[in-house]
């Protein structure tokens, strides 16, 4: 790890100014991924601008009936917040599906969005990686890639985004509030993360010295929502595939549906094709299967991860069926040992 200077900003503008003046700097929030990557040598900032004590840890209901989640809100506080648990259960479940109790106590909402892929080549500075060193190559494409992308990948990069939280936020139409040297702007969460294309070193559309200030949720969709994650270990592991969904069924037909996949792509994968296929359709397993297949038709699995396509389909059907049979109640039963 390279030596670095440290400064703690007094307010958001000072933090942004500090970074604007120092292009080799980064913001320090919870640090759970940043410190990890610094130890690995994957990132080597010369300056850490500590934003963890800025007043960004607020969760409040918005005038429009939505929810404002400050970027400094710790994962555990987000998952435990009564409004999140009752109105956006998929989000609470997704956050709780990630990492460990210790990490959730430290990691922040903003940092969670900005965490980097766990592709093993990205994390190994002794090997090529286009995301870490543009132009050096992607050994994952023909190498060890069981965990990696089946949708939206490129010749240059087959990484997946590791966040659980972001998958739920994608399904829930969250908006990211950013502030930078050029002022404030908002970006839909589904546009915040990028597909790798020719520039896999860019995970998101965030600009230099821009700070994630908050994530805003619109009012929750009618009906229920849920999140289900499949991983090798029963806990404390990144997703092979995960599904966040919200479903409203009226008179046996799908009135509204939101569906997003984790573990399949370089970004949380909002399944708009599946949603389109489902709206107005009968809320049956057959419809759910057809819709999932419609979404996953675009999949281009790698040598060792074709199973993810089937797993994603089965999981989507399972989650949607659960939501449908519960008549929109906000729970998706865990598919493991009872």
């Amino acid at each position: 790890m390279r030596r670095f200077a440290y400064t703690r900003a007094d307010d958001v503008d000072a933090a942004i100014a500090a970074l604007a003046d120092h292009p080799d700097g980064v913001f320090l929030g919870g640090g759970t991924n940043l410190v990890d990557l610094m130890k690995l040598g994957v990132v080597s900032p010369g300056l850490l601008v500590d934003v963890s004590r800025l007043p960004l840890a607020e969760i409040r209901e918005t005038a429009g009936g939505g929810l404002w989640i400050g970027s400094g809100v710790r994962n555990s506080d987000l998952a435990a917040h009564p409004a999140v648990r009752t109105r956006y259960p998929a989000l609470s479940q997704a956050v709780l599906a990630g990492a460990s109790g210790q990490i959730r106590n430290t990691a922040t909402t903003g940092g969670n969005l900005l965490q980097r892929t766990r592709c093993l080549y990205f994390q190994d500075v002794g090997k090529p990686c286009n995301k870490r060193v543009p132009g050096s190559g992607c050994p994952a494409r023909d190498g060890v890639h069981r965990d990696l992308a089946v949708l939206g990948h490129s010749e240059a990069c087959v990484a997946t985004h590791p966040s659980d939280m972001a998958v739920a936020l994608a399904a829930l139409d969250a908006v990211v509030h950013l502030r930078g040297p050029g002022g404030e702007r908002t970006v839909d969460l589904t546009d915040f993360h990028r597909l790798p294309g020719d520039e896999p070193h860019l995970d998101t559309v965030i600009r230099p010295a821009e700070l994630v200030v908050a994530v805003e949720l619109p009012p929750p969709p009618a009906g229920g929502s849920g999140y289900r994650k499949v991983r090798d270990r029963a806990s404390y592991a990144f997703a092979l595939v995960s599904v966040a969904a919200a479903l409203e069924v009226r008179d046996g037909s799908v009135q509204d549906v939101r569906l997003a996949f984790g573990g399949l792509a370089h970004k949380p994968w909002r399944a708009r094709a599946a949603e389109g296929a489902l709206r107005g359709a009968r809320a049956t397993e057959e419809s759910f299967t057809r819709a999932a297949d419609a979404e996953l038709a675009a999949a281009e699995p790698l040598r060792d991860n074709a199973f993810k396509v089937r797993l994603a389909r089965n999981l989507a059907v399972r989650v949607l069926s659960g939501l449908a049979s519960l008549g929109g109640a906000a729970a998706v039963t865990e598919g493991t040992v009872s």
Binding site: R118, L120, Q123, D124, G143, V144, D232, R233, A234, S235, Y236, A237, F238
Partner: peptide, 14 residues
């Protein structure tokens, strides 16, 4: 390939 405890999965409590 798996050289850390995030990728080499020893059993967890759950």
């Amino acid at each position: 390939a798996e050289r850390d405890l995030a990728s080499y999965h020893v059993p967890a409590c759950a």
